[in-house]
Amino acid sequence: MDILKIDGISKYFSGLKAVDDVSLDVKKGEIFSIIGPNGAGKTTLFNMISGHYSPTKGKKYFEGEDITNLRDFEVAEKGITRTFQNIKLFSNLTVLENVLIGLHIKLKSSMLDCILRNNKNIAEENACYDEAMNLLDSIGLRQKALELARNLSYGEQRRLEIIRALASEPKILLLDEPTAGMNNSEAKEVVEFIKDLNRTGLTILLIEHNMRVVMGVSDNIAVLDHGIKIAHGSASEIQNNELVIEAYLGRGKKND
């Protein structure tokens, strides 16, 4: 069953075709990777899926519903959240506060409830605190809950960003370069974390330059080059695709 369908989506900037007529069918519960050389349009595609950009043309459907014109916070409310290539934590807030911000979308208290600090508001805040601490426990950061986010190691910051995105209980998680800047040991930890998340039934869309990571976790892979989808298939199919080899290595490099 397709949870996300991208139908002929394009994004033009002053005539530049950053993404051109790309279609994808993402099945529920799979890890779907989007790869391609620098400037291929991968992050632009993510920005359209998440609602940060509006497509120039084309449609996107989530669980059969047309979400093409929804804004980013509305897309998040539907169940699609994301991380970014460059970590975007609130570095001067605590680890706990960063997760609580991710939980904000689930809060139901009205402004009046918050002003009055009534029983409904207090109960909801207590429940959010407990949930945030449980989430931090799941990534080994419970003991650092009151530390400032900027004091975490790079790998810990990346895990915190992912868990903050998970706080709203999304159905699809978009991960943009989750192992960027990591050493092999840190990358392996993140890969295992991604696999564990996927085992819970979470659908994951992944942009990643580390081909060892991509080939090791992906159920399906789409390849972009200059904004155009040039290939789509399993890891083995992508590894042996002539267009993919040419896009990454250049014409004639396969036999060099």
Rank of each mutant, 00 (worst) to 15 (best):
Q85T: 07
K17D: 02
S23A: 03
L160M: 04
A167T: 06
I122S: 03
Y154K: 06
L136T: 04
E189V: 07
K229C: 00
K144D: 05
G15K: 00
I204V: 08
K254N: 01
T179M: 04
P55L: 03
S236W: 01
Y248A: 11
S185L: 13
S153M: 08
V190E: 14
K144R: 12
L16I: 05
G58E: 03
K78W: 11
L45T: 13
I245W: 00
F32S: 08
R71P: 14
A167V: 07
G39K: 04
E237D: 04
V75N: 10
H209T: 14
R251Q: 15
H226D: 13
Q85A: 03
I80K: 03
S14T: 11
L24I: 11
I172T: 12
Y154Q: 08
G252A: 05
E147D: 10
G201Q: 06
L136P: 03
I172P: 13
R142S: 09
V19S: 04
M1A: 15
F84Y: 13
E125F: 04
D25A: 15
F73M: 11
E177T: 10
Q143N: 08
E156D: 03
E131R: 14
N118S: 08
V213E: 06
Y129M: 09
I115V: 03
C128V: 13
I67Q: 05
A165T: 15
T81H: 00
L45C: 10
D2I: 05
L107F: 05
D113T: 12
S110I: 03
Y248T: 12
E124K: 01
I245A: 02
I245V: 00
V99M: 11
D113F: 06
S168D: 10
T56R: 01
M48F: 04
G51E: 12
H226F: 15
T200S: 01
N119P: 14
S91Q: 15
S185I: 14
D256P: 11
N119S: 15
K171E: 09
S236G: 00
N98T: 03
E97L: 15
S10F: 06
G39Q: 02
N220F: 11
G8P: 08
L174E: 14
A165M: 14
D219F: 09
V223P: 13
A149G: 01
L166M: 06
M1E: 14
K60G: 09
T68Y: 04
I230H: 12
F32W: 09
V95E: 07
L206G: 13
N69E: 10
M133F: 04
G181Y: 07
L205E: 11
K27H: 10
N69V: 09
T68H: 01
E147P: 10
S153V: 02
S218H: 04
S14Y: 08
L249V: 01
I172C: 13
D176H: 06
P178S: 14
L136C: 00
Q143Y: 02
N38D: 02
N241Q: 07
Y12E: 08
N184V: 14
L160H: 09
S185Q: 14
A145E: 00
G51V: 13
D25N: 15
A40P: 06
S218N: 05
L166F: 02
A165F: 15
T200F: 01
G181C: 08
Y248Q: 10
E63L: 05
E77L: 13
G233S: 02
L206S: 13
I6R: 06
F84L: 09
K120R: 13
H52Y: 08
D130H: 07
Q157M: 14
K171Y: 08
K60C: 10
